[in-house]
């Protein structure tokens, strides 16, 4: 997918630019953006390292495990048909907590594990189970506490208050997840009948 997308963006850009006599600008942009990418990474490395450092403490002290545990009643509500001690629950909880804390890269492995475990419970192996639908909808609507990357990008491009968006972003993300949960619940009821 990204293969064609990337090629398409560059080719369209160059062809479109050729018709507009923008060849010099394009050459300049090619050099500048590669340079910009590295400058950005320097800001990014600082902010991300700050966050992963902090999260390492949360992990070592057992805080993340405790939060995962606290998810249980909520997960029982979302996935009433999964047995409480089933390993799928543990993976789903880990995935959701990692997403909430803005640790996207740490969320995928347990997420895929959760899918495997849900597949074991699934009767029809080629059709998504209700639990899978709910899990993916909640996952995609992703509640996120703080988007650390966004803070880094904002500060790199000279925002006066990079963190000013945290509050509204949390409210917006709650709305999207709530919509996802309500929809999943309605569909769940519809299929049980």
């Amino acid at each position: 997918m990204l293969n064609y997308l990337w090629a398409f963006m560059i080719l369209i850009g160059i062809i479109y630019g050729a018709f507009n006599g923008r060849m010099q600008e394009i050459t300049q942009a090619a050099i500048d953006s590669s340079k910009d990418a590295i400058t950005l990474c320097i800001t990014l490395v600082g902010v991300i390292a700050m966050w992963t450092g902090l999260m390492k403490i949360a992990e070592r002290s057992g805080l993340i495990k405790k939060l995962t545990h606290k998810m249980k009643p909520f997960l029982r509500f979302l996935f009433p048909k999964i047995p409480e001690r089933h390993p799928a629950m543990q993976y789903i909880a880990t995935n959701i907590i990692a997403n909430i804390l803005g640790l996207g890269w740490a969320a995928t492995p347990p997420g895929l594990k959760a899918m495997e475990k849900l597949q074991e419970l699934n009767k029809d192996k080629t059709t998504a189970s209700t639990a899978m639908c709910t899990f993916l909808i909640v996952n995609i609507s992703s509640v996120q506490l703080i988007s650390v990357n966004m803070l880094a990008y904002r500060s790199q491009y000279g925002s006066e208050n990079p963190a000013e968006i945290i509050g509204p972003a949390i409210v917006a993300t709650l709305f999207s997840t709530l919509a996802g949960i309500i929809f999943s619940k309605i569909m769940m009821k519809g299929y049980m009948r």
Partner: peptide
């Protein structure tokens, strides 16, 4: 790089 080219064009 790709977005930069697209923008400049």
């Amino acid at each position: 790089l790709a977005v930069g080219i697209l923008r400049a064009s």
